[in-house]
Amino acid sequence: MANIIVNRELCNGCKTCFRACFIDVIKWDDQAKKPVIAYPEECVHCMYCEINCKERAIKVSPDYQSYLFPRDSIV
């Protein structure tokens, strides 16, 4: 699955990555004020969280091999 890494030192808790996610991969921990990468296996590597993070505190490393796709049902 995609590896989504949050640098908790750099993260300022602005919630942008949480808002940026268009398919609910990233949840929010209200107490810690940090993102929770809840469903990394559903990430489609749009990179919107990473591009929008002003602190550059989040990084998405795609893993295309595990991406859900019916590899044996194409024809």
């Binding site: 859900l68 796709f69 019916p70 049902s73 194409i74 024809v75």
Partner: peptide, 9 residues
Amino acid sequence: IQKVMQPLG
């Protein structure tokens, strides 16, 4: 569901 929808045929 994807196995039904993806095939071009």
